[in-house]
Protein backbone atom coordinates (compact mmCIF):
# COMPACT_ATOMS: atom_id res chain seq x y z
CA UNK A 1 0.00 0.00 0.00
CA UNK A 2 1.23 3.44 -0.81
CA UNK A 3 2.86 5.34 1.97
CA UNK A 4 1.32 8.62 0.89
CA UNK A 5 -2.15 7.18 1.24
CA UNK A 6 -1.50 5.95 4.74
CA UNK A 7 -0.21 9.37 5.67
CA UNK A 8 -3.26 11.07 4.21
CA UNK A 9 -5.67 8.78 6.03
CA UNK A 10 -3.88 9.49 9.27
CA UNK A 11 -3.68 13.25 8.91
CA UNK A 12 -7.31 13.53 7.85
CA UNK A 13 -8.52 11.66 10.90
CA UNK A 14 -6.41 13.69 13.28
CA UNK A 15 -7.23 17.01 11.66
CA UNK A 16 -9.92 18.22 9.32
CA UNK A 17 -11.93 15.03 9.18
CA UNK A 18 -11.65 14.34 12.89
CA UNK A 19 -14.69 12.33 13.97
CA UNK A 20 -15.35 14.44 17.03
CA UNK A 21 -15.06 18.06 16.01
CA UNK A 22 -15.76 17.77 12.30
CA UNK A 23 -18.57 15.24 12.49
CA UNK A 24 -19.50 15.31 16.20
CA UNK A 25 -19.85 11.55 16.21
CA UNK A 26 -19.51 8.93 18.85
CA UNK A 27 -19.16 11.11 21.87
CA UNK A 28 -21.95 9.37 23.74
CA UNK A 29 -20.26 6.43 25.33
CA UNK A 30 -17.04 8.02 26.41
CA UNK A 31 -18.12 11.52 27.37
CA UNK A 32 -19.55 10.18 30.60
CA UNK A 33 -16.17 9.08 31.91
CA UNK A 34 -14.18 12.16 30.85
CA UNK A 35 -14.21 13.62 34.34
CA UNK A 36 -11.28 11.38 35.24
CA UNK A 37 -8.24 11.19 32.97
CA UNK A 38 -7.34 7.60 33.81
CA UNK A 39 -10.79 6.22 32.98
CA UNK A 40 -10.83 8.19 29.75
CA UNK A 41 -7.50 6.73 28.66
CA UNK A 42 -8.69 3.19 29.24
CA UNK A 43 -11.99 3.77 27.47
CA UNK A 44 -10.42 5.46 24.46
CA UNK A 45 -7.81 2.72 24.19
CA UNK A 46 -10.69 0.30 24.05
CA UNK A 47 -12.28 2.36 21.29
CA UNK A 48 -9.03 2.47 19.28
CA UNK A 49 -8.65 -1.29 19.58
CA UNK A 50 -12.24 -2.01 18.56
CA UNK A 51 -12.34 0.51 15.71
CA UNK A 52 -9.10 -0.74 14.18
CA UNK A 53 -9.86 -4.44 14.41
CA UNK A 54 -13.52 -4.24 13.44
CA UNK A 55 -12.58 -2.14 10.44
CA UNK A 56 -10.00 -4.75 9.50
CA UNK A 57 -12.42 -7.65 9.93
CA UNK A 58 -15.28 -6.00 8.07
CA UNK A 59 -12.92 -5.20 5.23
CA UNK A 60 -11.71 -8.80 5.03
CA UNK A 61 -15.29 -10.00 4.80
CA UNK A 62 -16.61 -7.20 2.61
CA UNK A 63 -16.91 -9.30 -0.54
CA UNK A 64 -18.95 -12.08 1.04
CA UNK A 65 -21.31 -10.21 3.37
CA UNK A 66 -24.83 -10.23 1.89
CA UNK A 67 -26.08 -6.65 1.88
CA UNK A 68 -29.32 -7.68 3.58
CA UNK A 69 -27.61 -8.58 6.84
CA UNK A 70 -24.69 -6.18 6.52
CA UNK A 71 -25.52 -4.06 9.56
CA UNK A 72 -26.19 -7.09 11.70
CA UNK A 73 -22.86 -8.66 10.81
CA UNK A 74 -21.03 -5.43 11.51
CA UNK A 75 -22.73 -5.07 14.86
CA UNK A 76 -21.86 -8.64 15.70
CA UNK A 77 -18.20 -8.12 14.84
CA UNK A 78 -18.04 -4.93 16.90
CA UNK A 79 -19.83 -6.51 19.85
CA UNK A 80 -17.40 -9.44 19.84
CA UNK A 81 -14.40 -7.15 20.01
CA UNK A 82 -15.99 -5.13 22.80
CA UNK A 83 -16.57 -8.31 24.78
CA UNK A 84 -12.90 -9.13 24.31
CA UNK A 85 -12.02 -5.70 25.68
CA UNK A 86 -14.28 -6.25 28.68
CA UNK A 87 -12.83 -9.67 29.40
CA UNK A 88 -9.30 -8.30 29.14
CA UNK A 89 -10.08 -5.45 31.54
CA UNK A 90 -11.75 -7.82 33.97
CA UNK A 91 -8.80 -10.19 33.97
CA UNK A 92 -5.89 -7.77 33.95
CA UNK A 93 -7.03 -4.46 35.47
CA UNK A 94 -10.06 -5.36 37.61
CA UNK A 95 -9.94 -2.10 39.55
CA UNK A 96 -10.42 0.01 36.45
CA UNK A 97 -13.09 -2.36 35.17
CA UNK A 98 -15.00 -1.85 38.40
CA UNK A 99 -14.83 1.91 37.91
CA UNK A 100 -16.07 1.90 34.33
CA UNK A 101 -18.98 -0.42 34.95
CA UNK A 102 -21.48 -0.51 32.10
CA UNK A 103 -19.69 2.07 30.00
CA UNK A 104 -17.34 -0.46 28.40
CA UNK A 105 -20.31 -2.18 26.79
CA UNK A 106 -21.47 1.09 25.34
CA UNK A 107 -18.44 1.16 23.05
CA UNK A 108 -20.56 -1.06 20.80
CA UNK A 109 -22.91 1.76 20.00
CA UNK A 110 -20.15 4.27 19.41
CA UNK A 111 -21.21 5.68 16.06
CA UNK A 112 -17.63 6.15 14.90
CA UNK A 113 -16.94 2.44 14.79
CA UNK A 114 -20.05 1.66 12.78
CA UNK A 115 -19.53 4.78 10.70
CA UNK A 116 -15.98 3.85 9.68
CA UNK A 117 -17.00 0.30 8.90
CA UNK A 118 -19.78 1.56 6.64
CA UNK A 119 -17.92 4.44 5.04
CA UNK A 120 -14.44 3.04 4.67
CA UNK A 121 -13.99 -0.65 5.37
CA UNK A 122 -16.74 -1.78 3.01
CA UNK A 123 -14.97 -0.29 0.01
CA UNK A 124 -11.28 -0.53 0.85
CA UNK A 125 -8.74 -3.34 1.26
CA UNK A 126 -7.95 -4.70 4.70
CA UNK A 127 -4.54 -3.09 5.26
CA UNK A 128 -5.62 0.47 4.69
CA UNK A 129 -8.86 -0.14 6.61
CA UNK A 130 -6.84 -1.14 9.64
CA UNK A 131 -4.87 2.09 9.34
CA UNK A 132 -8.07 4.08 8.92
CA UNK A 133 -9.65 2.51 11.98
CA UNK A 134 -6.52 3.12 14.00
CA UNK A 135 -6.35 6.74 12.86
CA UNK A 136 -10.02 7.46 13.55
CA UNK A 137 -9.68 5.88 16.97
CA UNK A 138 -6.62 7.94 17.81
CA UNK A 139 -8.21 11.11 16.43
CA UNK A 140 -11.15 10.46 18.72
CA UNK A 141 -8.97 9.54 21.67
CA UNK A 142 -6.82 12.65 21.74
CA UNK A 143 -9.80 15.01 21.66
CA UNK A 144 -11.44 13.25 24.59
CA UNK A 145 -8.17 13.10 26.48
CA UNK A 146 -7.79 16.87 26.13
CA UNK A 147 -11.33 17.33 27.42
CA UNK A 148 -10.70 14.93 30.29
CA UNK A 149 -7.47 16.74 31.14
CA UNK A 150 -9.23 20.06 31.60
CA UNK A 151 -12.27 18.60 33.31
CA UNK A 152 -10.17 16.80 35.89
CA UNK A 153 -7.84 19.74 36.34
CA UNK A 154 -10.59 22.31 36.83
CA UNK A 155 -13.11 20.05 38.51
CA UNK A 156 -10.92 18.25 41.02
CA UNK A 157 -7.64 20.16 40.87
CA UNK A 158 -5.84 16.94 40.01
CA UNK A 159 -4.20 15.31 37.01
CA UNK A 160 -4.04 11.54 36.86
CA UNK A 161 -5.19 11.56 40.48
CA UNK A 162 -2.28 13.72 41.67
CA UNK A 163 -3.00 17.08 43.25
CA UNK A 164 -1.50 19.78 41.05
CA UNK A 165 -3.48 22.86 41.94
CA UNK A 166 -2.47 24.60 45.13
CA UNK A 167 -4.77 25.38 48.02
CA UNK A 168 -5.67 28.73 46.39
CA UNK A 169 -7.64 26.89 43.74
CA UNK A 170 -11.37 26.37 44.26
CA UNK A 171 -12.64 23.35 42.37
CA UNK A 172 -15.25 24.02 39.73
CA UNK A 173 -17.61 21.23 40.70
CA UNK A 174 -19.70 21.86 37.62
CA UNK A 175 -16.82 20.53 35.51
CA UNK A 176 -17.04 17.02 36.94
CA UNK A 177 -20.83 17.00 36.73
CA UNK A 178 -22.71 16.21 33.50
CA UNK A 179 -23.22 19.80 32.23
CA UNK A 180 -19.48 20.40 32.42
CA UNK A 181 -18.83 17.87 29.69
CA UNK A 182 -21.24 19.60 27.32
CA UNK A 183 -19.74 23.02 27.95
CA UNK A 184 -16.17 21.76 27.67
CA UNK A 185 -16.85 19.98 24.39
CA UNK A 186 -18.63 23.05 23.00
CA UNK A 187 -15.73 25.32 23.90
CA UNK A 188 -13.28 22.87 22.37
CA UNK A 189 -15.23 22.72 19.11
CA UNK A 190 -15.52 26.49 19.12
CA UNK A 191 -11.77 26.98 19.43
CA UNK A 192 -10.86 24.41 16.79
CA UNK A 193 -13.49 25.61 14.34
CA UNK A 194 -12.50 29.21 14.89
CA UNK A 195 -8.89 28.38 14.13
CA UNK A 196 -9.83 26.43 11.02
CA UNK A 197 -12.04 29.25 9.77
CA UNK A 198 -9.41 31.96 10.20
CA UNK A 199 -6.87 29.66 8.58
CA UNK A 200 -9.09 29.21 5.55
CA UNK A 201 -9.77 32.94 5.30
CA UNK A 202 -6.07 33.71 5.24
CA UNK A 203 -5.60 31.23 2.45
CA UNK A 204 -8.23 32.68 0.16
Amino acid sequence: MAKAKVKKVFLDSLGKQNPVFAQVLGICSTLAVTNVLKNTLVMTMGVVFVTALSNFTVSLMRKVIPSRVRMMVETLIIASYVIIVEIALKAFVPDIWRQLGPYVGLIITNCIIMGRAEAFALSNPAGISLVDGLASGIGYAYVLLIIAFFRELMGSGTIWGYQVMGSWWTNWSIMVMPPGAFFMLAVFIWIVKGLLLTHEEKKS
Binding site: I65, V69, V73, S80, I84, I87, K90
Partner: peptide
Amino acid sequence: PVVFMVAVTVVFISVVSGIYLSTRDMV
Protein backbone atom coordinates in the same frame (compact mmCIF):
# COMPACT_ATOMS: atom_id res chain seq x y z
CA PRO B 1 -27.88 -14.35 4.27
CA VAL B 2 -29.39 -16.49 7.02
CA VAL B 3 -26.76 -19.21 6.68
CA PHE B 4 -24.07 -16.58 6.58
CA MET B 5 -25.39 -14.83 9.65
CA VAL B 6 -25.58 -18.09 11.59
CA ALA B 7 -22.06 -19.05 10.54
CA VAL B 8 -20.63 -15.69 11.51
CA THR B 9 -22.44 -15.79 14.84
CA VAL B 10 -21.14 -19.26 15.62
CA VAL B 11 -17.58 -18.35 14.71
CA PHE B 12 -17.52 -15.15 16.75
CA ILE B 13 -19.29 -16.58 19.75
CA SER B 14 -16.89 -19.51 19.88
CA VAL B 15 -13.89 -17.20 19.65
CA VAL B 16 -15.24 -14.99 22.42
CA SER B 17 -16.18 -17.99 24.55
CA GLY B 18 -12.69 -19.39 24.11
CA ILE B 19 -11.15 -16.19 25.38
CA TYR B 20 -13.65 -16.06 28.22
CA LEU B 21 -12.92 -19.60 29.33
CA SER B 22 -9.18 -19.10 29.15
CA THR B 23 -9.36 -16.08 31.46
CA ARG B 24 -12.10 -17.36 33.74
CA ASP B 25 -9.80 -18.70 36.43
CA MET B 26 -7.90 -15.45 36.45
CA VAL B 27 -11.10 -13.45 36.87
